[in-house]
Nucleic acid binder design. Structure first.
Length: 427
RNA sequence: GGAGGGAUGGCAGAGUGGACGAUUGCAACGGUCUUGAAAACCGUCGGGGUGCAAGCCCCCGGGGGUUCGAAUCCCCCUCCCUCCGCCA
């Protein structure tokens, strides 16, 4: 949520920043400005009335103590009349406040000035490509992971669909071990600086609102309506809300958290896309890394998170590229974002395996997470940043395809060996 | 799921209708004293809105109600504790 005071005091700048995203942002921001102006007038009048009621009520107490009953009763009548008016104004301003909040929750974050302009994901600039040479892939690496997986008995999509329906998958044997090994590696690679969390994976509506999935993107999440709970689409959701409604000391920042969790996505609207294999599934495992920072610490943290995600991917011997997200493709809550994509030679596609984002104070304001700047009065919103350290299915697919051997086995990348019970290859 | 008891500032803990945004203690911060520290003493010490400011307004788990006036009385909800039930 952007600060309503910015809409109030620097409307043109806010409007221009939002306009860079494309689409119709003008009407919502203008509506907020309009309602906010009305609200401030109402609130001023309401508070004046309250002050009068408070004063008169004090007088009543004094008069009664002094035994001046008739005067007290007159004051009571006066206060009662003022109270009626106050009640009306209070109801009107509460209604306006609700309208403003509903609008603000749907207005996206302002892009960072350095975010490149663009309309769609086709305009996202590639910042660097590492280890990729299309001509270097041999024929045996051109086999899709679902063929290799089924043949080796490490991937069983058919039975997963029998159990849970389309777009659910199941790893078996060494495939399941590989999945778990990837999570373990990602956690161990970041354990030097990040506190490991095992968060709840079912959360309240308020929690899903804090990170930005609600109210606008309810269709993308699984809901357990009977208990008013939602299945998390990413560990970002519970991790971000760890500090909800808290005020932190500046000295405590940055705070870093990491978590392995399953992630649940309805993938509404993506029917027919990437339907084969592991490319797009309803449930998958991911290790997320996340930080709370001061505004000043945020840019360096964004770099650090990208480097950490990159390092793990690189260590697995996969070709990858880093893409910066342009204004038109930037997620609602994002201030600035980078994606890491690995190349999967069997399917001949770049697969997004990590999205690293800086949210400025957009999520912090929704979750009400603040800190006390040292040597200053008052509090400020923190900044949140997060990214996938590793998302399992697509990395699993890229490994199986990239390291597929001529004899049909799959070589296990060296960093995963400690977690594979002595195996050096799959199959 | 059933019964009972709770929820007040960083923590502990008073306050049960009127000058209480809140006694007090601890912690923290600044100062005096000290070679330094401790102790003692003095002072500061929750958050938010609005306003140039003075000020005014809001917040005692959340929401609603009663009243001239609510931390205090009433209703609903959430969470915590104890006991029972169930259970990995």
């Amino acid at each position: 949520m952007i600060d309503v005071r910015r809409i109030r005091t620097e409307f043109d700048e806010v409007h221009a920043a939002l306009a860079r995203r494309g689409g119709d942002v003008a009407s919502e921001a203008a509506a907020v400005r309009e309602l906010d102006e009305q609200l401030r007038v109402l609130v001023q009048r309401r508070d004046d009335l309250r002050a009068q009621v408070n004063q008169v009520s004090k007088d009543v107490g004094t008069l009664r103590r002094d035994g001046k009953v008739a005067e007290a009763e007159a004051k009571q009548a006066e206060s009662r009349a003022l109270g009626e008016q106050e009640k009306e104004l209070a109801a009107a301003s509460a209604d306006l406040e609700g309208q403003i909040r509903d609008l603000l929750l749907r207005i996206p974050n302002l892009p960072h000035p350095d975010v490149p302009d663009g309309a769609t994901d086709a305009d996202n600039p590639v910042r660097r490509v590492v280890g990729y040479d299309e001509a270097a892939y041999a024929e045996h690496q051109r086999v899709p992971h679902w063929e290799i997986g089924e043949r080796l008995g490490i991937l069983d999509i058919e039975r997963a669909v029998k159990i849970s329906g389309s777009m659910f998958t199941m790893f078996r044997g060494q495939g399941a071990t590989l999945s778990r090994a990837l999570c373990q590696l990602a956690l161990d690679n970041n354990a030097d600086a990040f506190e490991e969390i095992r968060p709840p994976t079912l959360v309240l509506s308020s929690t899903l609102t804090a990170t930005g999935q609600l109210p606008k993107f309810a269709d993308d999440a699984y809901a357990i309506e009977r208990d008013d709970l939602w299945a998390i689409p990413t560990a970002e959701v519970p991790l971000t809300s760890i500090g909800k409604d808290e005020i932190l000391d500046e000295a405590a920042l940055p705070l870093r958290f990491m978590a392995y969790s399953p992630c649940y996505r309805r993938e509404a609207g993506s029917a027919g896309r990437d339907t084969r294999g592991l490319l797009r599934v309803h449930e998958f495992d991911k290790v997320e890394i996340l930080a709370y920072t001061t505004p000043a610490q945020a840019p360096a943290m964004l770099d650090e998170l990208v480097q950490r995600a990159e390092r793990t991917i690189a260590s697995l011997g996969l070709a990858y590229r880093v893409i910066e997200i342009c204004t038109g493709d930037l997620g609602q809550s994002h201030h600035r974002s980078f994606d890491i994509e690995v190349y999967a030679p069997g399917v001949g596609q770049w697969l997004e395996v990590s999205s690293i984002s800086w949210f400025s104070d957009y999520q912090a304001r929704r979750a009400n997470i603040r800190y006390r700047p040292e040597g200053e009065k008052g509090t400020q919103m923190i900044h949140t940043l997060n990214g996938s350290a590793l998302a399992v299915p697509r990395v699993w697919a890229a490994i199986v395809e990239t390291h597929h051997q001529p004899d049909g086995t799959v070589r296990i990348p060296e960093p995963l060996l400690p977690y594979m019970r002595g195996a050096t290859s799959l199959g």
